[in-house]
Design a binder for these strands. Structure first.
Lengths: 343, 343
DNA sequence: CCTCGGTGTTGAAAGGTTTCAATCCGACGG
DNA sequence: CCGTCGGATTGAAACCTTTCAACACCGAGG
């Protein structure tokens, strides 16, 4: 029952074999094909294992077997509920395939992402799912080229160099603005940034197309750019909005994600602006906190779990199926109307 | 530039050595002690590596070296922002120690937790941080006894069998209720559950002690038990609260965590109950969404990142320091008063 | 009594990296 | 010209598990 000192060597199959008085091949059989071993010896071996505190050395196992039983998701930002929901979906699929999932958080840093990718590659994980800081980064291609299946999650890329799973952001933007037009709004603002983010850009594009289709002059759709998609930036944008004279102030706002929308909502309420009467708000992602906001938020829902599950399935196909061909899956978003636009 | 088929063997040091016309010892030197190798050969070896798409095999490395460079955090519920903040703190410490952090999500399931622990142990990670489903589970002891440093995060245990890092929940409960007493409330309810959770129990205990210290009869502190600490349960509790006749209805509520508080807040606002005038609300954890709520939430702040950072430091000490002794660190929470109690 | 079939067990090889003692080679001092 | 020294390179062993062909044993069938 003693505790091992740091650095002390742990028991190996050889030790177990010696203690049980069998060969080490037999110990291995107990671990991997217990039915091949007679009950008597099996008991003896198992007892020796618990006595010695034997722990199978996964490195050696994997070295010999050449294969690992884990999948990895390198997430962009673990504190955004959207990504943890995606991770849940991946987890479900991994569990179904009897793999375990490890998560790495790059916290928006390309270098952290880089070192996670390197380590996972060296560990010979079955596949890597990643929401990259920059989808065009060549290091993704390198990892894939060297043989580790890579699937890009919630981002896309012009070329088709690997599988990806994403949601149609242009359509999402269109849905949001069409909804606002249906509700009779004629002065609308889009809030989000930085502009170079694919999501921010695509959602705006969708918004503009719906706006133009309704016959409004394109440049009458105001754009308020933020420096990040966070709650704090949303509040900030709310303040800027409040500075616009009432007669010209938008009566509705479409935010690039729910965090921004929640910040904006908070600013509105705390400064006495009524939602949706004076200003209607549409968010994006439909995270749990959107429905739970003080004024439940109308939002564009993305199939988060499904996104994760599908990505996991793609990476597994690539890992096991020789005839695999890359696919770009694009899901359809859906508008969920709640009080923040419905009065 | 060709892509390897699934199952194809990747290049090894031996292949690199052959391609560069050196021995494999030299290749290893290039990887581990580049200064020992003359610039000429080094270049040649590096070129061979990129040509062949060489990826160091971490299993073999670790098998030989006997040590890994990773730390793991087995989190209880990745979709609770509280835990992702703790993970950020751990990550910071890991980065400082030049280790990489992998996250596993047990999603409130003891069996998932179990299999994550087993795998991590077999991978010989440097240490395991865990917020367990059940802190008294004997499998934690077994892992520790067999030699992997284990630190329990945000939970405690009667015995001192390993290091733990937690926050004084009894004090937190006291702070919350003292604040409400200061604001003149005389009818207060505690909302949380299930009761067997250590946190739920301790916070209530603290609440009761403050309540009694103010001379109020102990049983006059109402308790509304929920079946989980979620937003949905918070809404539910709000509905139950609303069912109490006004004259007997509590004028203030102390919730066992912010998710419950946010749900309760949402119910109040949507049914026209004014916060804090008709009902004051105190949450617990001070997650980011608490400050960003429509009525910013008064909450008991826990030092989340510090919790994580300290836990990581403890596990590293245990992993490297032979003279390590277990410590139970208890942090002090702090009340953050906002509009939900301040009018 | 011998052979056969089957069950249970063994021993050695393989997998990729790191380490370290040993070797090699060129340069330099004597 | 020889011996020596230092830096660069090599080869073999070790890490632990898994696999698989070979072996020992036993009872049944001929």
């Amino acid at each position: 029952m003693s505790v091992r000192e740091p650095g002390a060597r742990s028991a190996s199959v050889k030790d177990v074999a010696a203690a049980a008085g069998v060969s080490l091949g037999t110990v291995s059989n107990v671990l991997n094909r217990p039915d091949r071993v007679s009950p008597g010896t099996r008991e003896r071996v198992l007892k020796a294992m618990t006595d010695l505190g034997f722990v199978r050395n996964e490195s050696a196992r994997q070295l010999r077997a050449g294969t690992s039983r884990t999948l990895a998701y390198v997430m962009l930002d673990a504190s955004n509920p959207f990504f943890t929901d995606v991770a849940d979906g991946i987890d479900a699929a991994a569990e179904a395939a009897d793999l375990s999932l490890v998560l790495c958080n790059s916290r928006d840093s390309a270098s952290r992402e880089q070192s996670h990718l390197a380590l996972l590659e060296q560990q010979r994980v079955q596949g890597i799912l990643v929401t990259p800081v920059d989808p065009d980064s060549p290091s993704l291609d390198e990892v894939a080229r060297r043989g580790t299946p890579v699937v890009v999650v919630d981002r896309t890329r012009a070329d088709q160099s690997f599988c990806s799973v994403a949601v149609d952001d242009v359509l999402g933007g269109r849905l949001a603005v069409e909804h606002l037009l249906d509700r009779g709004h004629t002065r609308v603002a889009y809030v989000g940034g930085p502009a170079h983010l694919g999501q921010v850009h695509d959602r705006l594009e969708g918004a503009r197309s719906a706006w133009a289709a309704a016959g409004h002059p394109e440049d009458a759709l105001a754009v308020i750019e933020t420096s990040a998609l966070t709650v704090a930036e949303g509040r900030e944008a709310g303040a800027r909005l409040a500075g616009i004279p009432t007669r010209r102030r938008p009566t509705a706002v479409f935010c690039a994600n729910d965090l921004v929308a929640l910040g904006l909502l908070q600013h509105a309420i705390s400064s006495g602006v009524r939602v949706p009467d004076e200003i209607a708000i549409v968010g994006y992602d439909d995270i749990e906190f959107a429905a739970a906001a003080a004024v439940p938020l109308t939002s564009v829902r993305q199939p988060r779990q499904l996104l994760g599950r599908t990505a996991a399935e793609l990476v597994l196909d690539e890992a096991t199926n020789v005839g695999h061909t890359h696919r770009q899956v694009l899901f359809t978003p859906e508008l969920v109307a709640r009080s923040s636009t419905l009065g």
